[in-house]
Amino acid sequence: MFDTSGAKKLVEVRDLTMHFPIRTGLLRRLTGSVKAVDGVSFDIYEGETLGLVGESGCGKSSCGRAILRLYDPTAGSIRLEGEEIAHAPFDKLRRLRPKMQMVFQDPQASLNPRMTVAGIIGEPLMEHTKLNAAKRLERIYELMDAVGLNREFANRYPHEFSGGQRQRIGIARALALNPKFIVCDEPIAALDVSIQAQVVNLLEELQDRLGLTYLFISHDLSMVRHIADRVAVMYLGRVVELAPRDALFADPMHPYTTALLSAVPEPDPASHDDAERIILQGDVPSPANPPKGCNFCTRCPRVMEICRQIDPVIREIAPGRHVACHLYAEDTHKTAAHAAQPTEV
C-alpha cells in the first residue's frame, strides 16, 4: 500500500470552510448559511488516491470543488505544491488550472451536447496551449487511445455514447493538459456495475502510467476500499476520521465510520446471517443548523454528556490515524480547552 513517509505533499488543506449563504424573503435577506464544509484539514500525497466518503449532503463535492477553486472558499488555506491558492486571483489560478482537473459524476450533464468528442477533449488545449490544429488533433487522438475510445468516434456527439464511454470522454478531457491532481467526484455513481469496473481500472492504470494524484469522492465504500490508499470520512461538513485504507476498513475508530461500514450490505448471503448491523436512528441534521457539540451527537450510539457540549477536535491518535471523537481524548481538559476556542461566529 501507499507509504506516506517520505512522500511529497501535493495538496495541503487547512481549516477549509465553505459556507453557502441562505437568502429568504422578497429582499433576499441573508438569514443564515449552509455549512457545507466546516473546518476541514488534510494532506494529499503525490501519487496517492485519497478517498473521500460520506453520505449525501455531507460536503464531499463542495470540498472537492473548493479545493480546485471552482468555488471561492469562505475561509482556510489550500496549497498546491506549496503555492497558496485558496484566495488566489484569477490570473494565478489560470496559470495553475492545467495542474488540477476534475472528473464529474454525471458524464451526460458535464459534456457540452453540441460539441464533438474532439471538440470537448480539445477545448482545454485551445484555451491553455498554443498547439496548432494538427498537433492538437494528434494530442486528442493520443488521449482517446489512453482512455480506450476508438479514434473513429472523434467527430461524434456525446449523446451517441453510452454512460461508460461518456465518462471516458470526461476523463480524456481532464487529462488533456497533463494534470498532476484530479478530483474525481463520484465518477462511477451514474454507471452500471459492469461498467464501473471498466472506468475504475482505467483510472488506476492512468495513475500508474502518469503518476496522477486523485481525490476520489464516492459514497460507494466498497469501491473506495478498492481504489483508495487512504480514506477520509466526512459527516456534516467535517472530516471525522482519516486513516490508511486497510486500517480504516479493518478497524474503524469513529462511531460514525463504524456505523457506516456496518450498513454496507455485502454481496454474500452468508455474511448477512451473523452481521451485527448498527442501525443508526434518524436522519442527518441540516448543515444549516448543525447540533451543538459533536455534530454526530444526535445519532451516535455512544454519545456521552460531554459530546453535547464540546466539539471534539480531530487528532492523530495513532500513526496516520486521525479521529475527531471524545472517546479517544487522552486528556479531556486539553481537548475541551482547544475546542472551546471560538471557531466561528
Binding site: S194, A197, E204, L221, S222, M223, R225, H226, E266, P267
Partner: peptide, 16 residues
C-alpha cells in the same frame, strides 16, 4: 466485478 468491503481485496477488478 463488484469489490467487497470485508475480506480479501482483489488487486484488480474483473471487467465485463
Amino acid at each position: 466485478t463488484v469489490p467487497h468491503i470485508r475480506g480479501e481485496r482483489a488487486a484488480k477488478l474483473r471487467v465485463i
